[in-house]
Design a protein around this nucleic acid. Structure first.
Lengths: 336, 336
DNA sequence: TTGAAAGCGATACCAC
DNA sequence: GTGGTATCGCTTTCAA
């Protein structure tokens, strides 16, 4: 094992100089710094993690808590974990997985043992048990998602309300007066933090604009295809000309199929806008305009906040909402 | 922060006694041990992670390397990560995610910094860059999956060959002489470590038994449904009476649909056996016999091996194959 | 701009 | 069965 004194010896300086040269926490003359960096590289030196934690009272590890619930959507989940991990590495942090059945217990454990410098909270439920815990511990945390009561918490997320409102705006601007939203199964509006925000954004903006708007959830994840098909037909038969989509990936295709089944076309007869999709909506036979949920955006911002809290010590709670980004693929048409 | 001397003071003993009492590495009288445990519990004491690493030269952390490739199947992947994490926790270890683009680099980093006690390698490719690296470093590792050259490595996995052979056996025992296997897209046989083993097990056992056997891969993941449907019709039209399934989840339903389309029935006219599925095969309108891939089995065993290597110091490389487990749901019928 | 040395909080050896 | 203490390898203060 290569230690700091090996590097010091080889570079012909003291260990404190090595430490400072590598951490950059104190100015070191160009010449010595180069000698030290060379020596370190040649020896393949990296500071011992345990020693660094103990002496520096910083572990350079973040915990990631992610309760695997039955209805967890694996691909989205994976995308967030990956995005968080990559963002963390960019700041020099590693990610420790907290999968304890009892999430609070895992958080308490890493808190008490000082294993991590901060905690990233994924898959936030409206009434999440981790909310109370996060408030009570010293270890700073960041929520990716917004719980019902976000008081005193640092939360980062896509601005789902604004996203839905933007979708409504686009439809309204194109002259659509009768619109609909296809949503997730009703249960999602109780168990997830984002679904209700999308619905709210849709309803509120539609009301503001005086549009005729209906919201329809799927019945069950299992029937995403069938339901989406049937509901779309109902929309069309009711004279709806603009539909906001915020539901299962499979349902998108069903919606397009239903439109075809009525002998209609997108965007000629019906306009579609997707909100909060994590998947690509441009690959369908009719590409669908999208205001996507981009894990990298949320995670980059979340990690930025967390690192600031840890390193600069300024933990200021509050919501950081990511601005929606409209991706136009031509699925919104002007109504004559 | 609660330290060991706080506990020692409260229990009225020395810190070494506290350490021994809590680690169990030295006999401590019942009475003192209880006093100490009580004090520790009351104070919410957990040893400081950094100090423990430094003094004990053991981090109680395992790294998990998992390259997220484009064709990664998120649900399976998640199941393995979860299973590995739970197994690790049972042994008192935490999991650190290694998602560096360059997997070897991540492994080298944790090796050099002494951040982890061992490495779990998931999603093993036939010619995995991590194989050479694992051989060259001191940190012990365990592969969940079997690379082409597993020499000197500790590998744990389902015995896919035996699983496929068992499937063939069952069909043969039921009198089937003309069988087929529906496989993954051809690319899988180059990029994954398991697909070739299933195919080999199928072919070899069929040859041994003198059966008429054909193997057919799907064309592309994207067309899993269409391909499976078409291939199944071909099988039936060719007089195949037994089919081994080792492919996409969606293809299973397509196979059943194709059977119905020919006015046939399972198991009356055709028998089905699934090999290596990670999903449930008993929920279809005709439940399908399965020799499943169970992440918990592989991960429990893998962690067992890794912990042994770390704690008992006996790292003996070699394959540990999990015996296949046949789950009968009545999809194999006796041929008259 | 650099160096000496005092911790950081455990573990585990050596005494008793 | 219990306690004192050297030690792990680094960070950071203090001094020069």
């Amino acid at each position: 094992m290569v230690r700091i004194d090996d590097v010091a010896k080889r570079a012909g300086v003291s260990i404190s100089t090595v430490s400072y040269a590598l951490s950059g926490k104190r100015p070191v003359s160009e010449r010595t710094r180069e000698k030290i960096q060379l020596a370190a590289r040649e020896l393949g030196y990296l500071p011992n993690a345990g020693a660094r934690m103990l002496a520096g009272r910083r572990t350079h590890i973040f915990a990631l808590t992610e309760p695997f619930r039955a209805d967890t959507h694996a691909p989205s989940h994976m995308a967030f974990v990956l995005a968080a991990s990559i963002a963390a590495r960019r700041h020099g942090y590693d990610i420790l997985l907290l999968t304890d059945e009892d999430a609070s217990q895992g958080m308490r454990r890493v808190e008490a043992s000082g294993l991590v410098d901060g905690i990233i909270v994924l898959d936030v439920a409206p009434d999440d048990e981790r909310v109370a815990l996060a408030r009570s511990i010293r270890t700073p945390s960041v929520f990716v998602g917004v719980p019902r009561d976000a008081d005193g918490l640092m939360c980062v997320d896509l601005d789902f309300e604004a996203a839905a409102a933007t979708a409504v705006d686009r439809l309204a601007e194109a002259g659509h007066r009768k619109i609909a939203m296809l949503g997730y199964p009703a249960a999602h509006y109780e168990t997830t933090n984002y679904a209700p925000r999308v619905r709210r954004g849709f309803r509120d903006r539609a009301r503001e604009l005086g549009l005729d708007a209906v919201f329809r959830p799927l019945s069950e994840t299992q029937f995403a295809t069938e339901d989406a098909y049937r509901l779309t037909l109902e929309f069309l038969d009711d004279g709806v000309t603009g539909v906001v989509l915020n539901s299962e990936e499979r349902s998108y295709k069903a919606v397009l199929d239903a439109v075809s089944a009525r002998g209609m076309d997108v965007p000629r007869d019906v306009s579609l806008v997707s909100v909060g999709a994590i998947f690509d909506t441009s690959g369908y036979h009719r590409a669908i305009d999208s205001i996507p949920l981009i894990p990298e955006r949320s995670c980059d911002l979340a990690l930025q906040e967390l690192v600031d809290a840890v390193e600069r010590g300024h933990f200021d709670p509050g919501l950081r909402l990511v601005d929606p980004e409209y991706r136009s693929y031509g699925s919104v048409g002007v109504l004559d």
